[in-house]
Design a protein around this nucleic acid. Sequence first.
DNA 1: ACAGAAACGCGACATTTGTGGCATTAGTGG
DNA 2: CCACTAATGCCACAAATGTCGCGTTTCTGT
Lengths: 203, 203
Amino acid sequence: MSEGSEVTLDSVKERTGGRSARVRQSVLDAARAELLEGGYGSMSHASVARRAGVDRATVYRRWPSKARLAMDSLVGLADNSVAFPDRGPVESDLREMATSVAKLLETPSISHLFQALIAAQAEDPSLREVGAGFWKERLEIGAHIVTAAVDRGEIDPVEDPAHVLEVMISPLYFRALISCQEIDQAFIDDSVDRAVAMLAFPG
Amino acid sequence: MSEGSEVTLDSVKERTGGRSARVRQSVLDAARAELLEGGYGSMSHASVARRAGVDRATVYRRWPSKARLAMDSLVGLADNSVAFPDRGPVESDLREMATSVAKLLETPSISHLFQALIAAQAEDPSLREVGAGFWKERLEIGAHIVTAAVDRGEIDPVEDPAHVLEVMISPLYFRALISCQEIDQAFIDDSVDRAVAMLAFPG
DNA sequence: ACAGAAACGCGACATTTGTGGCATTAGTGG
DNA sequence: CCACTAATGCCACAAATGTCGCGTTTCTGT
């Protein structure tokens, strides 16, 4: 009766602390650095392992595919480069955010990160839901600009705040990552104006 | 005086017809087929060469990088799967186009093509202008829907017709290729409505 | 039809990428 | 502190990727 045999069945056998955690972190950091520098194409298990100071086989064992490695290194990356102001009038808050996004997208290294995210999703369809969660969360945070304005009583309640943000930034990402067109100030302003219009006429 | 020595200086030495043209075409076709089936990640010089029935070295000599090969195979690809109607009311024309784009984007093989285009631009920055031309032309064609409506006298002249189309389809591409969110009918309708609003209130 | 040259096929080779076995190290639970 | 074992490092090896030289084919201009 005092047998503990079945207890070992659900005992945790996977190691999460100590060296394993250290290795995992350095590999993830190294992968992110590789993506920042050369983009998805130039990143490899070998280059990441070298930079992280671990063996090549270790990286292969933990992340069998390059796509998963890239995704793991990017998800959870708290990017504080984007401004999420919620004090001024909504319009200026939105304008400030759109501007910071545009500026971020024209930074080659940052652009590499987003392209890596896309490439990873393209190579491994099972990663699409991970990426979906990443963007969902990101838009929710951005939607705070709108909800804050509602709370201040500045504007009427909005049905889907995240959708407003999505519409505002979509053209920016489209031009930066897909159609490779220049993003000038007029384009940013237009995006902001359209978002503001959505708040004024929620039809 | 009758010397033709300097004529040979600017004589065309590159061969464009016969076998060379045949090889080029079969390789490009093979590359496109590879991209359709497995996407950018699974395409390789070897797989393309095998499918095209040419030697591996031949592909390497003509297209030193995978990115250029992919881009070459995609540019000039006249896609007749997208509807460009210009008869009905603008709103229905736009709705029809947005719907066909959305349907196209949820087709995995087609999605592979766009992702390959993005990946190629990401790997080789010099290809960004090529891709830019591809999209510029594509949007110009789509803008025909708007200009036709103007010509019919249905709506007032629009400053930048292509921009209207760009704003309409950006969220579709954003969800399909970047944020990996589902594109439902309401989302399509909203995109169309916003485009129509841009025509009504060109502010 | 003919000569010159560009493009191709073929094969050898170096490098990179990916996998498995095995001894050693170092967390984990007792 | 000790036994157990997951995780790592190291090595060997197979497969894929990329490059080069050379003989042959075939395009192009005369």
